[in-house]
Design a protein around this nucleic acid. Structure first.
Lengths: 191, 191
DNA sequence: CATAAAGATGAATGCTGATTCAGGATAGAT
DNA sequence: ATCTATCCTGAATCAGCATTCATCTTTATG
């Protein structure tokens, strides 16, 4: 196969602007924003969107992918902290809280993800996140803090239900209500 | 105000057919089914839908309302059972499970409800359900089974996050993970 | 610079789906 | 049986949106 010609500088620039604008628009108005609006936000014409992403689904997938990548980074950082002595259960809880906030910022990323069904996506990032969370779980289990039968899938399950549409007091409360199911301890009065 | 003329018999009949068909279609294909499809399922022309419900939103709202009414009935039945000696915490848990299944059957009712924002709806049924759940909670608290700071809102919050799109093993698992946050006991090995 | 290839533009197209409304059918009162 | 207020029908209208494409620009190569 012949070496693919290097992309032009402006094309690279535009691709970034589009990705960023799409992220912003989807965050602000949900995955149903029009392509025209995304294009406008990116300071580009619709046609350009299509040059970079053959279809709207592809664009949304790219945005979701970026989000997944960010989550993976966060999870790996948490693992690093545990290696450095932090308590795994605490890191996991904090991670959950952060991911929720991230998802709120990137509002509707969840909806967007769902609107894609089980599309490909950069499987690599998903795996990266999965491995990190698994590490967190087994470390927590070792400490006796995390319920022995909890798996990554449970974490995914819980996450996929986070109330990102709810206003803030609710999201924190939700986390409080959900954590006991993952740990070995019942909720205390002070929670 | 003059007494409103009684509606014609066929109009009453059609309204029922429409409501039922709309429920079925929404359950089967989500709240995005076309009005034409609902009309077809009801054996009626589109125009008729509009005679009964000025807008699609109104129709969906009516369907959601019916669902809420059913949930309220279920909750009241649970309260009755508690009065007859059943353990409140168990009834509450079972109720949660049933509502999830109900929501799965009436699939996308949740999505439909969300697509309405905080629309009016038959406030009466909502209150009815609220009162029943409150009764269940305080009874459970009395028994010392339900965490003292749990409120109806917590129940709503949890519910609004039920993973009704997930296939069955997941829904049951979710319930298992979520219950400990409501009760005073940590999860046991056998859960 | 001159030129070709790559990229950008945005009006036009096509589709989907809600909503309307002029005309035809019915229920039910007299 | 007649009559009219209700109710129904469904083709037509309208609007929103993704996607296309003929045409114009810009980049980068020699």
């Amino acid at each position: 196969m012949g070496q693919a010609r290097a992309p032009r500088a402006d094309a690279v620039r535009n691709r970034k602007k589009i990705l960023s604008a799409a992220g912003g628009q989807i965050a602000a108005h949900g995955p149903d924003v029009g392509m025209e609006e995304i294009a406008a936000a990116a300071g580009v014409a619709v046609g350009t969107l299509y040059r970079h992403f053959p279809t709207k689904t592809d664009l949304v997938a790219a945005v979701v992918g970026a989000h997944v990548s960010r989550v993976a980074d966060d999870a790996e950082a948490a693992v690093g902290r545990v290696a450095a002595g932090a308590r795994a259960a605490d890191e996991l809880t904090a991670f959950l809280g952060r991911v929720i906030e991230l998802s709120v910022t990137d509002r509707a990323v969840k909806a967007a993800a769902q609107s894609l069904g089980a599309e490909p996506g950069d499987r690599a990032d998903e795996d990266r996140a999965g491995r990190a969370v698994t590490a967190l779980i087994s470390a927590g289990r070792q400490d006796g803090d995390i319920h022995p039968d909890i798996t990554v899938n449970d974490i995914y399950l819980i996450f996929s239900t986070a109330p990102i549409d709810q206003p803030e007091p609710a999201r924190a409360r939700w986390l409080t209500l959900v954590i006991p199911g993952l740990t070995t301890r019942a909720r205390q009065e002070g929670d």
